[in-house]
Write a protein that binds this DNA or RNA. Structure first.
Lengths: 145, 145
DNA sequence: CTTATTGCAAAAGTTTTGCACTATA
DNA sequence: TATAGTGCAAAACTTTTGCAATAAG
């Protein structure tokens, strides 16, 4: 993890940004919650637990900075706020989500499986695809009728 | 179009809801903008042009009603607000979107092409899929390098 | 008449911004 | 000591809600 933090620090410095103590704390929270989809407020609460003197505005500004520098990416599940996950867009196409309409559980789908579709769209529509986002809605094992 | 309005009216009455004049005006705006993705505020502005005495709260409440009754569906492009499009979820899996990162253009993709992927996910994860949402990001013909 | 629906204004929730203060190179 | 970064509070936006007035069966 410290290795990752160093890499991020380097990436930021390359763009003349600093990895300040606050930003590092926020980054640590993102790394410790790689599997979750945290809202800005949730990040804020988690950061506050260990460092009570970090402001919510700093969290928002840091998320924006991390997004711009491709350190995190955001997803929107339509629940009223943006959610963030460690890992940039340019790290390649990332995983999909299956969202249970009953219990709200989110299942990660690591396989890609969109190559054929993308090939067709790129050809038919003359659209150069750099990334994608797929959400499947339905019912998980527990909740299926 | 009047035909569609009658169908919606029937659908609502079946659930003991009325197609009030306000709701009909909102529905007309949705029908006149089938190809667009309107925010609540944009719908409000369009409705106001012809009927200045309709309130924004009514637009929000009507969108909720139309969503519940599968008359419209919503999409979220991460720009700070929900967007709505005529046509329900249950009308079958609907089209995908290719979003140009340069000019913001949204290209509709009518083909589905996700059957194989869904079959695999449903089997591997034991997840019963009822709908999906796919966004492709990249560069359109005009903007491609 | 009785109940659903509406408009308005207020409230709630998320995100952004202005500004004075602080840390840091 | 310049400049980037921060915390706080205020503002901006989207969405929801309470409530009295209205409309419609």
């Amino acid at each position: 993890m410290n290795n990752t933090i160093n890499e991020v620090s380097k990436k930021l410095r390359a763009q003349e940004y600093k990895l300040t103590p606050q930003r590092e704390k926020i980054l640590r929270v993102m790394l410790e919650n790689k599997d979750k989809h945290l809202s800005a407020d949730e990040v804020y609460i988690l950061v506050k637990e260990k460092s009570p003197d970090v402001g919510l505005a700093t969290v928002y500004r840091t998320m924006e900075l991390f997004l711009d520098n491709d350190i995190i990416h955001s997803v929107n599940f339509g629940d009223g706020c943006k959610r963030y996950e460690y890992g940039g867009e340019k790290d390649g196409h990332h995983h999909h989500h299956a969202i249970c309409l009953e219990c709200g559980d989110i299942i990660e789908i690591d396989e890609d499986l969109l190559e054929d579709l993308e090939a067709k769209v790129s050809q038919d529509k003359n659209f150069q695809i750099t990334n994608h986002e797929l959400k499947l809605f339905g019912y998980c094992k527990k909740c299926a009728d």
